[in-house]
Nucleic acid binder design. Structure first.
Lengths: 153, 153
DNA sequence: CCTTGACCTTACCATGATGGGAAGCACTAT
DNA sequence: ATAGTGCTTCCCATCATGGTAAGGTCAAGG
């Protein structure tokens, strides 16, 4: 099977298949005499495993661990479960951070009449600065930086 | 005021201040005779505006628009509000996607006894593949790819 | 006056996962 | 034989941020 066919069958782009091979997430694919990569059903299954794991938000690093457990017939399901619950925890943390942003934004947006006039509590709040002092003067809900947000994973 | 002091006063790292200048998000800072950047209270206020916007998850691109509206005394508050509600929409979409992942993961984790035995429905599900066919055989809740997730912003 | 330490400057590299494109070779169907 | 599609490798871009290195500057104290 060609890389293109494997891509179609697994839902992983050819580009990413080559990338996964280059970072050794998957073993080096076999080659035809002319240098084309060749994939078997087993390898496509592994690619689907990866694809599904990515769909659940796992990082490549975590997928490496998942694959290792998958291959290991003497694994302990507790180890797999821990990976899953860690993933849940991380996602939930992210959701909470974003929810805090949403709450703040909605609060601000609700206060903005949103018409032709220039007065805007949203800009007023952003411009005010929200000092890190003891008594914040503006709505101070979202504490997470966008940087911190994307930091996870 | 030095870049270090401006960083402390605004909550934006010196590194990022230079970066924001290089991409023209903020105007070119003045310099002392020896080449040190100099910042006034006005510029620090702009940096705080940026910092706060980032805290609310706005991309640099969106912050550019926010800053333009901030400076424009003839702005229409509707334009600001639209930026805010768009941001809310984007965040909510992301939250929904992550919530779907969480739901799927929790479902799987709940089914995993998590002990010393190797049997694990989590790996079984990942390995099974969840074909894109009409009748998915495994739990199929999370439809968003991690790629799509981070694609926003 | 000289040293020390803290701070500034620029320039380059790295991150994580992915896409895009170019140049060149291989395969398939007409 | 030729056209078209698909494969190969290699390089670049993303986005916002941090790290590091080599070198210049400033302020305080001996």
């Amino acid at each position: 099977m060609n890389i293109g066919e494997a891509a179609k069958a697994s839902g992983v782009s050819a580009k990413m298949i080559r990338y996964y091979e280059s970072i050794h997430l998957i073993p080096t694919a076999g080659r035809t005499g002319s240098g084309y990569r060749v994939y078997s059903a087993t390898e496509v299954q592994m690619l689907r495993f990866i694809r599904r794991s990515r769909d659940l938000g796992f990082s490549v690093e975590k997928i490496e661990e998942l694959l290792a457990l998958w291959r290991d017939r003497t694994r302990q399901s507790a180890d797999v479960k821990r990976l899953a619950t860690d993933q849940i925890d991380g996602l939930e943390r992210k959701v909470r951070e974003m929810q805090a942003m949403i709450d703040t934004l909605r609060h601000l947006a609700d206060a903005c009449c949103g018409d032709h006039r220039p007065d805007c509590p949203i800009l007023a709040d952003l411009g005010q600065g929200t000092e890190p002092g003891p008594v914040g003067k503006s709505i101070q809900t979202a504490k997470a930086t966008a940087a911190q947000l994307s930091a996870f994973r």
